[in-house]
């Protein structure tokens, strides 16, 4: 796992998960983004388009199958309309649950620098659907990491 995330190794890799299952999961993932004006209401939207889902699902299925217990799957997808915007994330399977972390969401690829201390970054959070939940770093469901969604596979 990249620095900054808790290490949950070893993962249940290699793991067999059908591309259709991954596609269903990817298509269901939604996020909630802050709007231009504070407090003006948010709107939930799909993280992946169908086209992106169809592209990504077999690749994830294949990568999770090939991964070893110490590896996670990393992906990066360009936006269809705006190829300079990228969605980047991590996937792994642990205890028959698929973990999806979205690190960047339609973020312009170019960054003039590492973020300065005060440049505000667009804020968004993934919305867990049926049977899904956020990863919680503390007991009792506290310490939720809002860009990390867990989906049971069985």
């Amino acid at each position: 796992m990249p620095p900054g995330y808790p290490s949950l190794e070893p993962y249940n890799h290699s793991y067999t998960i059908q591309p259709d299952e991954v596609l269903t999961l990817l298509e269901s993932v939604q996020y909630d983004a802050q709007s231009l004006i504070p407090f003006s209401g948010n709107h939930s939207r799909h993280v992946f388009t169908r086209q992106q889902g169809e592209l990504l699902a077999p690749a994830i299925s294949n990568a999770v199958h090939q991964a070893v217990p110490q590896e996670v799957v990393e992906f990066s997808l360009a936006d269809h309309d705006k190829p300079d915007r990228r969605t980047k994330g991590l996937v792994f399977v642990l205890h028959d649950e698929l973990h999806l972390i979205i690190e960047e969401l339609r973020k312009p690829v170019y960054q003039g620098e590492h973020n300065t201390y005060q440049q505000p970054v667009p804020q968004w959070e993934l919305l867990p659907g049926d049977r899904q939940r956020h990863y919680a770093s503390r007991p009792g469901g506290k310490g939720k990491i809002m860009n990390w969604i867990i989906t049971p596979l069985r």
Binding site: A33, S35, R45, T49, D79, D81, L105, R106, P108
Partner: peptide, 13 residues
Amino acid sequence: EQRQSSLSDELAQ
């Protein structure tokens, strides 16, 4: 919907 998402994200950025 996809275009709306892109536009909203772009606007927010």
